[in-house]
């Protein structure tokens, strides 16, 4: 059996004269957390919306669970859940009323009471939608995406605007979804989030796929060197460190020394040498490359540009 639950081939989507998605192809495997990352406006939402049967006009082909998002739109929506970046429900609808309403759209809906409990919204069940905080609204829309017991859950910018604590609790939830056997496709412009959470990451820039792999493979292929920093006193000379094999560069200014290393094991040698030189290690720190660096190296731009 084909293990891919989503296959996108050469997807192109225009809005009037703007090309939002420009020839993207990828597949999502059953049971993985698949991340679509890139800056705002890169085409993440458009890609997800095309897959989740929210658009009727695009070119290229999309197959989701053996269904076509245009011709089998309703059948497909029964088996997936979509949390949208920007959507609302009426202000004066209470949470329990909203959950009941959306349950009625599915043949086998999950128990909404349990979902609200899982998402820490149970005590808000009698509140109006307008009385929720931003984070609570996000969680409500995640609950709504789950209500139909979906095989694939799409989470579009699911943590933007959340405080760090709320982000971490949603990450836990996403991992739970995978452990329940669901496939999760998420988009984010937080690279650290994608790195921590995703099994595989597609980097999208200007409507094109720039790279696709697991975060660790992307980082080892495109992340560049690990950096080592420490504070130094006057008269320190780092020249001798550059002789070590695996040290690629040494930048030594008045009070800091920064090294780029291509082999992690050389860090042990650096520490030994510093110790021998009588250099304290209080300020010593290592910065491994991140997806942020991958994006910079592949596209030549910072994510937030």
């Amino acid at each position: 059996m084909d293990d891919n639950v989503v296959t996108v081939q050469n997807l192109v989507k225009h809005y009037k004269d703007v090309k939002a998605v420009d020839g993207i192809s990828f597949s999502v495997k059953r049971g993985e957390i698949f991340g679509i990352v890139g800056p705002n406006g890169a085409g993440k939402t458009t890609t997800i919306d095309c897959i989740a049967a929210m658009h009727r006009a695009y070119s290229g082909s999309i197959d989701v669970l053996g269904l076509d998002p245009v011709s089998d739109s309703i059948a497909l929506k029964r088996r997936i859940g979509l949390q949208q970046q920007e959507s609302e429900i009426p202000d004066r609808l209470r949470l329990r009323e909203a959950m009941e309403l959306f349950s009625s759209f599915y043949e086998k809906a999950l128990d909404w009471k349990m979902l609200l409990e899982q998402l820490n919204l149970w005590e808000k069940k009698d509140s109006f939608f307008s009385g929720l905080s931003g984070g609570q609204k996000k969680r409500l829309f995640v609950a709504m995406a789950l209500i139909g017991d979906p095989e694939i859950v799409f989470l579009d910018e699911f943590t933007s605007g959340l405080d760090p604590q709320a982000r971490i609790s949603i990450w836990k939830l996403v991992r739970n979804l995978r452990d329940q056997g669901r496939t999760v496709v998420l988009s984010t412009h937080y690279m650290d989030e994608a790195e921590k959470l995703c099994d595989r990451v597609a980097i999208i820039d200007n409507g094109k796929l720039a790279a696709l792999d697991s975060p660790s493979d992307l980082i080892s292929a495109h992340g560049g060197y690990t950096r080592v920093y420490f504070n130094v006193g006057e008269g320190f000379n780092g020249e001798s460190l550059s002789l070590l094999e695996g040290v690629e560069s040494v930048i030594n200014d008045d009070d800091t020394c920064a090294l780029e290393v291509s082999v992690r094991s050389v860090i042990v040698e650096i520490v030994k040498k510093l110790d021998a030189m009588g250099q304290g290690l209080d300020s010593f720190r290592i910065e491994a490359p991140t997806l942020e660096d991958v994006f910079l190296n592949i596209t030549g731009r910072e994510v937030r540009d």
Partner: peptide
Amino acid sequence: AYREKGILKRFRAAPVA
């Protein structure tokens, strides 16, 4: 107002005609 706020969009994501 439903259209502007994205309420119709939220309905559209559900399997409902």
